[in-house]
Design a protein around this nucleic acid. Sequence first.
DNA 1: GGTGTCGATGCAAATTTATTCATTAATTAT
DNA 2: ATAATTAATGAATAAATTTGCATCGACACC
Lengths: 160, 160
Amino acid sequence: MKIKAQRLLAIKHLVSSRKVSSQEELVSLLEEEGFKLTQATLSRDLKYLKVAKVPDVETGYKYVIPDIGQKVEASLPSNEDFPVSGVESMEFSGQMAIIKTRPGFANGIASVIDSHGPYEILGTIAGDDTILLISREGVSKTDVINALSLFMPGLKEKTI
Amino acid sequence: MKIKAQRLLAIKHLVSSRKVSSQEELVSLLEEEGFKLTQATLSRDLKYLKVAKVPDVETGYKYVIPDIGQKVEASLPSNEDFPVSGVESMEFSGQMAIIKTRPGFANGIASVIDSHGPYEILGTIAGDDTILLISREGVSKTDVINALSLFMPGLKEKTI
DNA sequence: GGTGTCGATGCAAATTTATTCATTAATTAT
DNA sequence: ATAATTAATGAATAAATTTGCATCGACACC
């Protein structure tokens, strides 16, 4: 049906161009554009479009269009276990860990860790061949290793 | 009762390892792992972790951990309250603090901190976008924030 | 022309999720 | 230590979302 297709398009456009925080709000916006529908229908539309509801700092919640090709890490394509090959060792001290890398690799590896941004890791700082990693309070060494292992398989074997 | 951080980790793990389709379901799963909490708390946890609810063909809906690339906030603010404008966030862990900055800003901001040399701050180390700040023993988190706020107004709002 | 099927939709109920309020526990300041 | 703040949480409630059911209109077929 013609109207529905246009409406879906309008929904996509609205959702991606501004922060919509509830379905009722979106119904109003659609009405301003000449679409007449109820929230129930919108719920079905959003499900059809796979629009997700995600927490947002500013507005509490917002709807987002699913990203299609997003699994890119620009600088390190198609080499998933590259990072770990640069790691020489990993050792803990309290809630800190020191990761020794091959010379010059520390920054690259740290940026990989940062880009994955695991909840467990508060932050990292890299020198030339050493990374200092600070883990969040209440997080165990095992937690850290597990979190990193998700994208750095084999890391466990490097820990002392 | 276990610690909140552990619960957040458990939530993260559960959500990423299976398709959870409602908060009540997740409350049950958490209970099986020994966490006792209500749906209200879980709602807050999910908001904190920015876990999104997304339509799923199999289960209707599911929760997903936020993906890496979604920070498309490419706004370049004015230098009015430099250097705090370069600060993304500040978070404490024990007597350390991790300050996240915009890429490349860490050294500049750290040197500003060093040049003011507040008594409360033992020292800083800067990477590219992260500063590790070590505070003196006996100094509270608030002390640190207050000291820094003297020349970095608005920093308090950046702390997590 | 009837009649059946199907997709779209509204209404209202059911379900799910978010928030308010009050209380308690932690942390920090005096 | 004691007071003052701040953070965490549950119970209850409000708000938001999903869904069952009935209807309507378009189309196909007899």
